Simulated scan of single mutants.
Amino acid sequence: MLIVGILIFGYSLRNVKISAVLHDLANLKWQWFLVAVLCIVMYLVLEAVVVKVFMADRHPDFTFKNALRVPLVEQLFNGITPFSTGGQPAQLIAMMQSGVDAGQASSVLLMKFVVFQAMIVVNFLVSMLIGFHFIAEKLQALSLLVVFGFLIHLTVIVGLLMIMYWHSFTKKLVNLLITPVKWFRSAEKFAQMQVSLDSKIDDFYKESLRIKSEGFKLLRVAILTFLQLVFYYLIPYFIMLSLGVTGLNLVMVTSLHILIVMIISLFPIPGGAGGAEYSFSVLFSSFIGANSKLVLAMLLWRLLTYYFGMFAGMFALVIKPDKVK
């Protein structure tokens, strides 16, 4: 992924003078860039706080060091796997390394995932109201990707809510939807798949009962997750301030970043490589006039939102966790 990133940045610099980029870098307002760095740090720290909140009544001796390893390891494996599919199992392994039972760890990660998805949908709804017309004007293809991405996230959260509140109906609906699979698999393998899916739905339903019984804790986690995402979405705004860009609309820049993150999630290449850089360049070119500043802004943005988490995850992976009793 580092090689891919270098190639993408090299391609982005094809029509830009290196001397101009170096000049912009030399005149960077570091105080604003440090605020952007603080934003990504707070994003990771708040996710660790969420893990700690969920683990407080299960393992009071689960340290903050262990909690911080979870989002860092997640960042690494999200960054090197297609569609960020490696993040969830990596978090599970990180918690098990701390001595947490696999069932308990799965329960915590499941609840964290539900809240995270819900907050993403809330943020997307707000950002679409504010910034969708801007994307539709700039590039129609991107607007279609945004709508598609939103529908995927909405489907996930609706599916989770259906299991929580319409358990029996959801099981019947899932068994109905997978019927075409029977045409391509043997009767034995199809039956095994049905049993496995029913078991997963039942497990999630049992955990959802626990979620609903912990209303105050769920509210705390929802607020923390919302703040976590706000810090992440603010990063481009502070990067542009560090480059001396003036007249920025905080709400518009933040909303566009939310939509960019939605677009990235649809690219199968790890980290949305290529699509992320292209989306950023197209949408923020209206705010940043000089090409050299636009390329530098994109580079700094990817360093913070992608590579920072990956390298932090590499360090976290080799740090020995504290064992819980």
Rank of each mutant, 00 (worst) to 15 (best):
L283H: 02
A187H: 10
T63S: 15
L294Y: 09
S199R: 12
F204N: 02
L72N: 01
G289I: 13
N123G: 12
I239V: 14
K29A: 06
Y43T: 03
L76C: 08
F116P: 01
T63R: 04
L317A: 02
A36P: 10
I264Q: 03
G247Q: 07
L294D: 07
Q91A: 02
S196I: 13
M314W: 11
L154C: 02
L209M: 11
I135M: 02
L209P: 08
A102Q: 12
F315V: 15
L161D: 01
K217P: 06
H59E: 14
V195M: 13
N66L: 08
G215V: 07
K171F: 12
M162R: 15
G313E: 01
P71I: 07
I201F: 00
I201A: 01
P270C: 06
F280I: 08
L7I: 14
K323E: 07
L317I: 00
Q75F: 10
F116G: 08
L28V: 09
F311Y: 13
M314N: 05
L46W: 04
V115I: 13
A141P: 05
V35Y: 10
V121D: 02
E137A: 13
A316N: 06
L227N: 06
W166E: 04
A276Y: 09
L25M: 12
L13C: 11
Y306W: 13
Y278P: 00
A316G: 15
I263A: 01
L34C: 06
L250D: 08
G79F: 04
G313R: 02
S84L: 03
A273Y: 11
Q117M: 10
L209W: 11
L177E: 10
P82W: 10
N66P: 14
L144E: 10
R220A: 14
E188M: 09
S196M: 13
V108N: 01
